[in-house]
Design a protein around this nucleic acid. Sequence first.
DNA 1: CGCCGTATTGAGCGCTCTCAACGAGGGTGG
DNA 2: CCACCCTCGTTGAGAGCGCTCAATACGGCG
Lengths: 237, 237
Amino acid sequence: MNKIRGKIKDALKNFHFYSGIGLELLPKKARIELENVSKIIKLKKKQILYKRYDSPKGIYILLKGKIKIYQLNYDGSIQILFIYTQGEIFGYRPLLSLGKHPVSSAAIEDCELLFVDKEHFLKILSNSVELSNQLLKSVNHEFTVLVNRFTVFAQRGIKERLALSLLLLNEKFKLQNQIIEESEIKINRTDLANFAGTSLENLVRTLRTFEEKKYIRTIGKSIFIENFEALYVLTGI
Amino acid sequence: MNKIRGKIKDALKNFHFYSGIGLELLPKKARIELENVSKIIKLKKKQILYKRYDSPKGIYILLKGKIKIYQLNYDGSIQILFIYTQGEIFGYRPLLSLGKHPVSSAAIEDCELLFVDKEHFLKILSNSVELSNQLLKSVNHEFTVLVNRFTVFAQRGIKERLALSLLLLNEKFKLQNQIIEESEIKINRTDLANFAGTSLENLVRTLRTFEEKKYIRTIGKSIFIENFEALYVLTGI
DNA sequence: CGCCGTATTGAGCGCTCTCAACGAGGGTGG
DNA sequence: CCACCCTCGTTGAGAGCGCTCAATACGGCG
């Protein structure tokens, strides 16, 4: 059983949208420098951090809570692209290339983050080849993740998308130092629908069929995966 | 009319998947160095350049023809992610981050490209901050494009996807020095279906409805856009 | 206790997929 | 030069999926 889960985990590696870089991966020196010039930001649930087309002001390191990265369309529909959790660093890509934010960012839960402004960040970056390489790898990882998800979303139905989304979220919702594979996925239905790329109603219905088949178990709004393999097979990857 | 088209072009900017970097954008010095150590590769139509999970051997500069970047799934289905045309540089991203290719690459038409091997490329790169910045911008651009397309593909139907795809391809198929807006989009139906993310049959049907509405005109296998604005409105972006 | 935001369930319709058959066109060998 | 074949494109029919609209249930908070 553990072998199968290991295999699943391995196959999903290129779908996991951990930002590709976390606090613990930063070069020691750069990390200390960044922390020294950072200031703390607190966000309430649903509060917006930045919007599409904003000029980037700096980078963010998530200490507590969850952040969603999404696009809001003219018709009001929303697509969630990434979800970040504690330890992850984000918002630096447009800074590296002098562009605007192509996406918006908001808190899913109450959050606490470190903010490092543009000038400080770029200065520290220019003094650390190691940090620069880390960030490049990170950008590359997120690109790969997006390409892989793109293919699934362009070609598969809701069952497949949701199965994939749940497996990914299970990783995201692991607690620090959590050993067991199964996490409590605490996300509201609307966000989950926007993440899986479907309507709220269809999401609920598909969740129900998963529950009937014992792939998952729901308690209140929380979701627990019961059968990892079945979900994995469903994704078709 | 030109004003409207200008506006459309502007709005589509972040959907165009020109690699973000072309020969003419390279710093002069780096360009000459790259050309000096490059060798020519010729590919026949349908020939594969590299495959997903291959280790990158070097970078490619497309001199003639068209290259598709795609993913092949276990069930045999294909999703085309990018299409490159002459002057574009590609294949460098995994090199920057020491990863594998997350996608495959093959010739849509007979192609001629310059190949610069890994070692030479990395050496030239390490001597040119300017080149490095260009490539970063390019990666960022492709990321933005992918995010935007992702949202459309995750949420919209075939009409919308195809409308967007055609507008993008119209740019791709412009000839060098072409002034008029309308291009001859020469692509076989299967590739177009795989690019728009639908089945061959549905693609054909949707093309027909576009033709009946005078949005496009087809001559043999070639497609010409007649009504840019209508297609743009359809995309919903 | 009532209100508001969130979640669930139902019904009906339109879209997109699949399966299947047919047509067109280019290339090859007789 | 023609007949054949093979690939590619086109059309039709039917089933199932996923969307929207609408009604109802739940649950936390004032």
